[in-house]
Structure formats: structure tokens, C-alpha cells
Design a protein around this nucleic acid. Structure first.
Lengths: 148, 148
DNA sequence: TTACATGCAAAGCATTTGCAGATAA
DNA sequence: TTATCTGCAAATGCTTTGCATGTAA
């Protein structure tokens, strides 16, 4: 899988949350600026819609869940973040733009990135009429006490 | 990953849906018998709760969604079937007891098994206090027309 | 000025739960 | 007989939508 979308790189001094919006031709509204900053200017992490909502509130800014969801979906469609469906009713979003897989600690609802180079994935070729969209690898881990 | 749960093998003449129940020490109620038959006696396939519900109804049997979900969860905990969370609000259950991964055709909500031997997966070792529960590999495919 | 974004509240949807009545062993 | 299961209906939790209002350019 090597779809090469130009993605915002949090390490580059020439980028920042604001021009993520500009570069992608979406209006730089107050809410989107706040969200972009939280998503792209805090290093690699995994974020849920609720996390984001809370962080914005803690910052004393006004936002609604609908806007958080709209924006997450928009950023996802633009390829700026990636949705990880770890469980029924639990989506996390990932701002790591390097190719990687996920280690999911089930009892903590916590996700850790595994660099692709540590996983050797060799999938069979697919017919020309189909397009590879994404490969999710979720390695699910639980602590020993937690066996049901 | 080599957790070796004794799993019902649909190919064996010495097994059938009914003794899946006996073997696992769960009461052979009418509903569970019907469900077990639909799940284990129809070859490899991917089934949703709703599918099952409809199939039971079509068979002129009485069942409720609650029972379908209870039973699916129970069979999953026993390791008899495997839950695949393909999307938010969409779980499929898989009665293939061989180790394998999944190809998910997004626009058709269809899943195809990929035998493990076709994917070369080499994950890093995990700490002793943690237990590998499961590795999900979902290769997501969409038809070319379907690019958003 | 106006196309687009926001926010509320309501709707949606798959799944879970509480509980009274039914049933397998 | 009794522990367990079923089925209904209501509750849940996340996410989406409709629509009136607000706002960036």
C-alpha cells in the first residue's frame, strides 16, 4: 500500500495546524483552527471525538459534538488522520502519518503504534477493478488477569 | 498466535451443531439449537446478527434479537466463532476456525477470508505480563468508482 | 453578499439490559 | 424444582442529520 497523499508533517517548522486548513482548501473557522491545533500540534497520539471535545472545553472554547465529528470525518477523508475502529462503538483517530499498525491494549482502551517495518505483511494481489483502500492490522492485547 | 481452543470442526462427521452445545456445557435450548445449526452446519461464511435473525424467522421459528446477540456473544467467548468489527456499528461473525485474515469489500459489506499462509505477519514480541489475544488483519478494498 | 459552517436537538442504529415469565435438566 | 434462558421493551452510547442561525472571505 503506497498511496501517497501529501500529509501534514508535525515535525516540519514550515507547517502548522493553521496551514493544514489552507493547504486543503477548507475554511479556517474558529472551531477548525482549535481542533487542528489539538490534532496536529501535540505530537503523535490517538484521540477520540470525546477527548477532543473535552480538550476544547477545558480550553474555554465553545464547540459542539456535531462539529467535532464533522471535522474528524473531513480530516479523515482528506487523509490527514486515520480512523481506527478498535471496538464496536469506539473509534479513535490517529495523527501519525507514517505507515504503521496498531497494538491495542483492550482493558485500557489504549493504542500504541507499531512501525510497519516491524510487521512483515505480504498480501496477495487484488484484481485491477478493485482498489486497495487500507490495511488495518490491530494486534489485540489483554493483561493476564483479564481472561474471560 | 497459537491459542489452541478446541473448536468445532464442521467437516467432521462426529460433530454437529447440537453437540457443539453439549461439548461446551451450555443448555441445548430450542433457540440455541436453531442458531448453532445455522452457524455451524452451513459451511464457512460470515454472518451478522440480523442475517441470523432473518434466517431463523424464514425457517418459521420464533426468536428475538436479544437471544441472537446473547448467543453470538456466548459462542464468541467460547471461541467457537470470531467477531469481525468491520465498521462502526457493523459486526460480522465468522465460523471459520482456521487461522486467517479478512478482505473486506467496503461497498458490498462483504468479507472474504484470506488464509494466513498468504500473509506474512511478524509482530514484535510482547512483555510477559501481557497476553496476545488476537490479531485482526482487515484488508479494505473498494471498487474504483467508489473513491470519495 | 453568500456559500459554507456551526450548534442544537432530535433521529438513527446496532447492541445491551432489566425483568417477568418460560423452560431444560 | 430451580437455575438458567428467553423475549419484550426500554435504555445505551456513539454518531449522524435537519435546520435555523452565524460567519469567513
Amino acid at each position: 500500500m503506497s498511496a501517497s497523499i501529501e500529509v501534514y508533517n508535525p515535525m516540519s517548522p514550515y507547517n502548522n495546524a493553521i496551514n493544514v486548513l489552507e493547504k486543503n482548501g477548507i475554511r479556517a473557522t474558529k472551531q477548525r483552527r482549535v481542533l487542528a491545533k489539538l490534532i496536529f500540534d501535540k505530537g503523535k497520539r490517538h484521540i477520540s471525538a470525546e477527548n477532543l471535545f473535552d480538550e476544547v472545553k477545558k480550553d474555554d472554547r465553545k464547540i459542539s459534538m456535531a462539529t467535532v465529528y464533522n471535522t474528524l470525518k473531513q480530516f479523515t477523508n482528506l487523509g490527514l488522520i486515520k480512523e481506527i475502529v478498535v471496538d464496536q462503538n469506539k473509534s479513535l483517530y490517529c495523527n501519525n502519518n507514517q505507515s504503521h499498525y496498531h497494538l491495542y491494549i483492550e482493558d485500557e482502551s489504549k493504542v500504541i503504534d507499531i512501525p510497519t517495518k516491524n510487521i512483515d505483511l505480504n498480501i496477495p494481489s487484488i484484481p485491477a477493478c478493485l482498489q486497495l483502500h487500507n490495511i488495518d492490522v490491530i494486534v489485540r492485547i489483554r493483561t493476564l488477569k483479564d481472561q474471560k
